[in-house]
Structure formats: structure tokens, C-alpha cells
Design a protein around this nucleic acid. Structure first.
Lengths: 340, 340
DNA sequence: GCACAACTTTGAATCGTTTCATTGTTACGA
DNA sequence: TCGTAACAATGAAACGATTCAAAGTTGTGC
């Protein structure tokens, strides 16, 4: 089969006008039952499939939305993507997914590609500081919603998660379960998420008389970095051991847990409580199931699409920023010492 | 900005014919330097962006390739996707990504969507048994390459990984490091991958005089399932402990490792060697870094695109199946007892 | 000064769909 | 039987880029 059947072929085959075939596809009510049947039969017999390019050309815009994430491999984004796809499907749109892999070049490529495709709008979790690139989009009038990053509301809508609140939640939980001497483990505070989570934790600690928060800086945010911190804690000995540890993400927490449980020096949660952040799949299947802070990724994805739809449909764009509060997930790693 | 500039607007603005603008974009050599500059200036001033729909309509096909995977969250597919994107970029094509989530309905939606988009071809990791759906694609003449699934070569090209060889590799490695009494841990052998890996392991064991392979069936392929198996091994006691354990995936292996290291009943690799499959990110950061079998995901993605390109470019389609052999990754969990 | 080749530029035709003003058909009440 | 309203069907125009035959321009050698 060289060329697929066009609407014209269908029209000929069914002995009707092309407009009628189009109506059957788009406004079935306008067409009589008899004609409709003939046309549908022809469509079936010829294996006709709409040519979306022609449709788009005529319509002036596509029925797709572009979504550019920093890393599809990251469960956080995977979940956002899925939610966005489902939400878009409700509006009859499809999502074109791009993975920038934290690379500004790849990001730029996708932005160009999506603009050539005349996407209705763009959801983007931008790489680094990107005001220029995004300003260009704004000038061109491409509705854009920033994901997982707060935006100047005069410029863009955005959806984000309140990391300060998440940090507060984690520290508050440790305090609530009776721990007073707390430690925060995180990478460089130049990472906004880390800084915000720390700030929230500090806020909670300040509220609690007699509580303290020690900051332990890790080399990165990986399991291995967490293990180093754990080993350091073991060397410092029991007297210097915090009662509760809040790690800036689950990988760090799992690393800390590994070193403590491997050596059997300290028990979790009896000697020290441990809480992470992100609630990755591995949190629940850790040696000691890990308490964590879960980010409302489904809500993020869904809301991002909703904000975008708002912008697409309204004429003069009003931007909104929606900030979600994360959720505490309690597991064994922070069980009360008494109940331990 | 209501409507973006068209090639006609650019032509007017630069006082040239539309054909000339098109030539500047597609065949710059055909245009004189002076004209080219004028046109490029106009393009810049008007913020012109090519309308891909119009281009596609004229060309009769898009410059995109559809890729439907079972689960973008799965690192295996994530890696395949990335490789496919890079390979497609070399051919000047982009990849439209669809995540079926093991759901035949979603898969069908993506197939339809991609056909309407007139993708050049389709890479698909199909859900379940799908001969009918795929046969339809074949009838329509949509070049299709199956990913991670062998295909009847008279019908489709395909790329896959030899799980039998992977199983052989894992068992062979345990034997090579001096282990004789081996165990295989896996979910139901109704899962093809599990069955193939087991078969390969059995082949290796048969080759080795005096070696044995015990099959332990787990309830699923998760960390928790692995932990149950580990606990069972502990209960059985030291005499019944295999010298080497091959788990059908890394999650199972990590579970087994957890239960053994947590209780300190048996040491890895001194008392028992452990090897997994997939080489997930967590394998390297396990308490005892886990040996594993790595699947050549980059090669899979790249080759899939290459086979597809072949089919697209050749007139009468010749199908090929490419099977890759996985790779052994040795880490501490299978170190020789002597060197342990 | 002219013929001819080489290089530029032109603009109408085309791709497949949707839109919509127009025309055709039917049914019904007067 | 006629007028009219409601409903169906028609088909040309439009969307924006690419193509390509044709026309226009320049340069070269004799």
C-alpha cells in the first residue's frame, strides 16, 4: 500500500461529497442515518485514517500539549507525566513528552520541535535559569506552565510542591514521636529543594522548646553519600547520636539505614528514628520500612494541565501559581521508641 | 500575538517569492547570499517558525517515529527510550513516546494516535498477545519493529535480549567462582523471561559435573518476595544453604540480601554468593554491591531505530530479528570466597 | 554584440482536511 | 397546490509549506 486513503477517496467510494464525509467524522448528527452507514462502510473498506497534519493545518493548532521534564527516569516525573497524560486525555488532547535530561540543549531542541508542531501549550520543568528562553515563549504567545518551579505570576502559571512545608512535616513528626535532638542530612543548600526542606525543619524545631537541629552536609544525594554520613555517625559514637534524622531524600536515608543496620551499632527506630523524602518505591521495602514525605505528583500533573487549559481557553491570560503541600507517610523507621 | 507568521508573511516582508523563502530553509545553496540575508532577517524579525503540519501534509509523512513502551518508569525502558531518541535524532527524526502501562486500551489509543500523525514507523513493546492489532499495522503498511520481543521474521523485524544466554552467564559465573550447589529464585515460569533465564542457568549447571540447581519459586518479583525467600533459607539452616543464588531480577536479589545481612546469619559472599538480573541503579549501592546481568538497553534502542530506518527506506520490506547477549557485571556479592 | 550556460527567482499547483454559504430535498400545515 | 421550515448534502475556498517548470539574470568566450 503506497498511499493511504484520503477523505476524497472515501467520498468517491461512498458516492458522497467530501464535506459529507467530514461531517460524518466530526458532526455525525448532521448526517442522515443512511448516508452515515454508507460512509462508515467506505471508511472501513478503504482502511481510511484521518490525516492529522491536514486537520491541524486547517485548524491552526494541534490537539497536543508538550511536556518537557528533567528526567523521565525519575519516579517523581514519571508519575507527573502519567497524571498529565490522563488529564489531557479528558480534554481530548495527547501529550508529547520530551526528556531534557537536565541538558539545556536538549531542552531547547524540544521547545523548537514542539513549537513547530504548534502544540496548544507547554508544560515544562526547566533546566537551570531559563528566563530568556521562557520569555521567548511568552512573546510568541505559547501558553506555558512551569512544573515543580515557582514562577513570577505576572509571567507564567506554575505548579509546585511546598518543600518548606515538607521539611516542617518531617521534623514535626520526629518531634511528635518524642525525639528532641534532630539532625538534617542533605547535599549543598545551593539546591533549592534542600534549602527549603531544611528551612521548614528549622521552623519546626524552633517551635519546640529544647529541641535542636544539627545540619550534616552530604556529598551528593545518593545512597553512597548517605552511607558515608551513617559511618560518620557510628564513629562519633552513641553519645553524639541524634534521636531523629531527617534526610533530604530517600536515597540518603536508605544509605544511612544501610550503614547503621549493617553494623548493628544502632537500631532503627529504637536508637534513632529516620525519615526520608520523596517516598520512592524502595522506601517501603527497605530493611526497616522508611517513613517519608510523599509529593502529590498526580495532583501536580493534573493541575498543570488544568492551568494550561485555562490559559489556552481564556483570551487575556491570567496566571496562577498552585502550591501543593506534601504528605507524611509513617512507617516503621520512625515508630515511637516505646512501641518499637 | 494571534497568529504566527507564515512563510508568505516572511516573503512579503523580505520582498521575495514564497518559493525563495522555502529554498532558504531547505536548500540554502540555491539562494544568493544577499537574498538569503534579507530572508533570514525577515524570519528573525517576524519570529517565524515553520508549521510542521503544513510541511508534513505536503511531504506525505512526518519526521517522527512512534515508540510505545510498557512502562516508562521501568529503568530498562527508560534507557531504551533515550537511546532510541538519540539514534532517531541522527536521522533527523524525533520520537513520539507512548506509555501503555501494560494496558491494551492505552496501547491501542497510541497506535491510533500515531497513525493519524503519520509516523514514519512504530517501535513497540506490545502488551500481551497482540497478533491481530499488529497484523492491522502490517496491512496498513506501517513499518513496525518489536522491542524486547521476538517476532516471526516473515512478519516483523524485532530486537530482543537473549534471556537464556543471560541465565547461562549468571550461573556460569557462580560456577566459575567455585560454587557448586546453586539455587535459582524466580516468580512463575509462565513469565517468559523467568523461564528463559532458568533454562540458561540449567544449561550451565548441566555442563558442570557435580553441580546442582535448586529452583525456589517466589511470590512475585519484588524486594519483599526476595526477603521471604531469604527468611526461608535462614530457617532451613546452614546445611541446606546453597553456595550460590541466582535471582531472576535485582529486586528479588536485594530482598534476599536484606534478610541475610539483616540477621547476620549468613555472610555474602563468604557463605553464599548472590547474583541478580537487570543491573538496576540500586545494585551498585546495595549493602553488598550486587553482581548482576546487564541488558544492552542502549544497543536495543539504537538497533530498533536502525531496523526501522531500513524498513522505511527499502521498498519491499525484509524483516530481521536481532538478539543481543547480555553482559555480566561482577561486584562484591559474588567475590571468590578466598578473596572475600 | 551575441549565443549559451549557469545560476536565481518566481509563483501556481499540490497535499488532505474543515468550513460554510449554497443548493437540494422532505414534510407539513394552510 | 403552494409556501415554508427543517434537514441533508454539496463543493469551492482556505490553511501553510514544498515543488518544479518556467522566466529572469548574470557571466563568459568568441
Amino acid at each position: 500500500m503506497n498511499r493511504s486513503a484520503s477523505i476524497k477517496d472515501v467520498a468517491t467510494h461512498a458516492s458522497v461529497a467530501v464535506g459529507t464525509v467530514s461531517n460524518v467524522l466530526n458532526y455525525p448528527d448532521r448526517v442522515s442515518q443512511r448516508t452515515k452507514e454508507r460512509v462508515l462502510k467506505a471508511i472501513d473498506e478503504l482502511g481510511f485514517i484521518r490525516n492529522d497534519a491536514a486537520r491541524q493545518l486547517r485548524a491552526g493548532h494541534s490537539r497536543t500539549v508538550g511536556l518537557i521534564v528533567l528526567d523521565v527516569g525519575n519516579p517523581f516525573f514519571t508519575s507527573v507525566v502519567r497524571a498529565a497524560e490522563d488529564a489531557a486525555a479528558l480534554h481530548g488532547s495527547a501529550v508529547l513528552l520530551g526528556d531534557s535530561g537536565h541538558d539545556a540543549g536538549r531542552e531547547a531542541n524540544y521547545i523548537d520541535l514542539f513549537q513547530e508542531q504548534r502544540v496548544q501549550g507547554l508544560l515544562i520543568s526547566p533546566v537551570g535559569d531559563v528566563t530568556e528562553r521562557l520569555d521567548l515563549l511568552r512573546e510568541r504567545g505559547v501558553p506555558t506552565v512551569l512544573v515543580d518551579r515557582l514562577a513570577d505570576e505576572s509571567k507564567f502559571s506554575s505548579v509546585a510542591v511546598d518543600d518548606d512545608a515538607g521539611g516542617y512535616l518531617a521534623a514535626r513528626h520526629l518531634l511528635d514521636t518524642g525525639r528532641r535532638r534532630l539532625a538534617f542530612v542533605g547535599g549543598a543548600t545551593s539546591i533549592r529543594q534542600v534549602a527549603d526542606r531544611l528551612q521548614g525543619a528549622e521552623r519546626a524545631v524552633k517551635e519546640e522548646p529544647g529541641a535542636t537541629l544539627e545540619v550534616l552536609t552530604s556529598e551528593g544525594m545518593t545512597v553512597l553519600a548517605g552511607r558515608s554520613v551513617g559511618n560518620m555517625l557510628i564513629e562519633r559514637g552513641r553519645d553524639a547520636l541524634p534521636e531523629g534524622i531527617f534526610c533530604a531524600n530517600d536515597l540518603l536515608a536508605l544509605g544511612v539505614m544501610q550503614s547503621l543496620t549493617m553494623t548493628h551499632t544502632f537500631r532503627i527506630p529504637e536508637d534513632v528514628a529516620l525519615i526520608g523524602y520523596d517516598d520512592i518505591d524502595f522506601a517501603v521495602s527497605a530493611v526497616v520500612p522508611l517513613s517519608s514525605i510523599r509529593q502529590p505528583t498526580e495532583a501536580l500533573g493534573r493541575t498543570a494541565i488544568e492551568l494550561l487549559t485555562e490559559e489556552v481557553e481564556s483570551q487575556n491570560p491570567i496566571h496562577r501559581s498552585v502550591v501543593f503541600t506534601p504528605e507524611l507517610v509513617v512507617r516503621q523507621s520512625t515508630a515511637s521508641p516505646a512501641a518499637g
